[in-house]
Nucleic acid binder design. Structure first.
Lengths: 192, 192
DNA sequence: TGGCAAGTAAACAGATCTGTTTACCTGATG
DNA sequence: CATCAGGTAAACAGATCTGTTTACTTGCCA
């Protein structure tokens, strides 16, 4: 039964999110996961490998959550673009919100580890690609440009909520996003 | 000569920025600052106190740098609002750019320490107040709303640059900021 | 000149970190 | 039944962490 591996990853994600990466020891993860240290090192060669596995797994979970939630909010691509920030608001309001795990990871490993940085870049790239796909569906001219702007708004809303300790920034970002989207659509009309 | 205190703070800021807070030991800071450990503990009761002193000092330095740079770019309040993102671009392009120290601090201490969190909130509040003051000068209706939006864009640009490892996000954020500012000014005209 | 503030270097205490090793247990399968 | 993969518990190694202590040095100034 190698569900132990998954238990370790799940536990690692929780502890890393709540306490940070350096502040979370291997012993603690093994203890909370209810797994011996030897088994942990059987599944992961090092702490870094566990961090990478945790980031990768969280990447999948989070993007799935985001896309599913947004898609359920509305069928309209326009509303879906805005819906990103409604989903963000719900996320920020959860009691287990400790900011974006990838941003936090970069903060601790911005210097050294290339693998960890790359995992964070992959995540961001794929979220941005999803936003761009929505922008394409909304028939926006230059969807990549809008996706880049909205992604920056989203990142900003995340860290602002994390620092402030409340979800207000989601609403602010949503209003700003509406202005940007409408402006992009106006531009379409003008240039058609 | 209590310039030792300042040496320690300066060194701490550099090492914390580059390597993170947990990953930077007291011994290392003392060694790099060229100061004995005992002297370090003479000036600061604990590592946390040194972190707080470093954050507070960096707060002053950074806001001074931001305001001075922006004010020098132009006399026009409109151009100054946009100039924030030009200053950001220059900042991101520097070889010692490791993201925002306060965002990184929150990432490592989002859970525990109230004092560190408060230092980060103070910083953010004061930067936002500066942006709002520029918005007031630009005679924008509801300057607080615009300042909140631009602050979120700025935060987003910072973390995006940090993850990507390049300064592109500053340009993207600037273009988005222009749309938001122009929209706010249009709204002024309509409602006058 | 005498004393004191401020510093250094280095050992120490005790905790905690990553990672390894040893000895034992348990349950499924050939 | 015997074996063996997969697990546990716990000690261990060696490094590093925060913070303290001891003993010595240096420069200022009354």
């Amino acid at each position: 039964m190698s569900e132990k591996r998954q238990d370790l990853i799940d536990t690692a994600i929780e502890l890393f999110a709540e306490h940070g990466f350096h502040a979370t020891g291997i012993d603690r993860i093994a203890e909370v996961a209810g797994v011996s240290k030897k088994t942990l090192y059987h599944h992961f060669r090092s702490k870094e490998e566990l961090i990478l596995a945790a980031l990768k797994h969280h990447d999948g979970l989070f993007r799935n959550f985001l896309m599913k939630s947004v898609d359920q909010l509305s069928d309209s691509p326009y509303e879906r673009l805005l819906g990103i920030f409604d989903v963000a608001q719900a996320w920020f309001s959860g009691k287990d919100f400790y900011g974006c795990m990838f941003i936090n990871a970069i903060g601790e490993y911005s210097h050294g580890d290339t693998a960890i940085r790359r995992a964070c870049q992959d995540f961001k790239t794929q979220v941005s690609a999803y936003v761009e796909q929505l922008a394409v569906s909304a028939q926006i001219d230059n969807p990549k440009a809008l996706a880049d702007s909205l992604s920056i708004l989203l990142e900003g809303a995340i860290v602002t909520a994390q620092v402030a300790g409340n979800a207000e920034s989601a609403g602010t970002a949503k209003r700003a996003a509406k202005v940007l989207i409408d402006s992009a659509l106006d531009h379409n009309v003008e240039t058609v």
